[in-house]
């Protein structure tokens, strides 16, 4: 269970996230949708304790990330693909993380096999393609066999086979009773993967509902999403949400908000 309450964060005068509250429950894949710059990555970073919220809290299993006893064994996370030193091999990277949370060394080989990296495990990770880097990030997220997974744009850089693989992986992880929270700006992908969706725009909650309910009144989930987020479309011009300048947001009202909000 992931629980955000009144989360707010401002970067250099720009409100990236505003009074955001939601819950992510175990057992299903929950998609985290929003246009570029809507605050998805910022929210993920706050959940993982990398950025401190100005106001509000986000708790995982009832605790803040920094209070977890064995973080990697409780929460698996993937933020940006390249979260490793380029000079280290995939095996060395995972071995270091395993040592940090007393995870058995044998688990490193298991996640390398699982992510299809076993053959490249000894190579410098800096030479990896984006798809392989993404697989290494997923391997790190699965390393501690965690009950909660936070994945920010996990299909970036993956080929069709890789996309299907991670879709099936996320579904089966959720089916095992885990909490799977996955952000994406690819609505069609989320329509295939997620059961529930949390939609944000301009750092505010636009909808917290199921995929079926959200797409019920529209031709497709994509249409429903575009209708919902049209008010925040102006922020898309600001570019990628990872660049500081791109952490754009605003305080404009969203006329669709009251209609779109479902209390399920």
């Amino acid at each position: 269970m992931i629980e955000a309450r009144g989360l707010s964060k401002k970067y250099g005068g720009v409100q990236a996230v505003s009074d955001l509250s939601f819950e992510v429950r175990p057992g299903v894949v929950t998609g985290f949708l929003g246009p570029n710059g809507s605050g998805k990555s910022t929210t993920m970073r706050m959940a993982l304790g990398l950025d401190a919220p100005d106001r509000g809290t986000v708790r995982i299993g009832g605790r803040r990330y920094r209070d977890l006893a064995w973080p990697l064994r409780e929460v698996g996370s993937l933020l940006e693909a390249r979260s490793f030193h380029p000079g280290r091999s995939a095996r060395a990277h995972l071995s270091a993380l395993a040592a940090g949370n007393a995870i058995p060394a044998s688990r490193v080989g298991e996640v390398l096999e699982l992510t299809g990296l076993a053959g490249a495990a000894g190579r410098r990770a800096g030479k990896f393609s984006l798809g392989m880097a993404q697989r290494l990030g997923i391997a790190a997220a699965l390393l501690g066999d965690p009950g909660v997974l936070l994945l920010d744009e996990p299909i970036n850089g993956l080929d069709p086979e890789g996309i299907r693989w991670i879709r099936d992986l996320m579904k089966s992880l959720a089916a095992e009773g885990r909490t799977v929270f996955v952000s994406s700006h690819l609505i069609s992908e989320m329509a295939l993967t997620a059961t529930r969706v949390i939609v944000i725009g301009g750092g505010r909650l636009l909808a917290d509902t199921t995929v079926d309910e959200l797409s019920a009144g529209a031709a497709s989930l994509e249409d429903a999403f575009l209708q919902l987020t049209s008010a925040s479309a102006e922020f898309r011009a600001d570019g990628g949400e990872r660049s500081p300048g791109g952490r754009a947001g605003g305080d404009s009202g969203y006329s669709q908000y009251p209609m779109a909000r479902r209390s399920s």
Partner: peptide, 24 residues
């Protein structure tokens, strides 16, 4: 929610029947 035990032999995260319960 992080302490659910998995008893399967070949689950999604590749653990072979290992308990997901976090030790003390």
């Amino acid at each position: 929610m992080t302490g659910i035990t998995v008893s399967g032999t070949d689950n999604a995260s590749g653990t072979r029947g290992r308990s997901r319960a976090v030790s003390g």
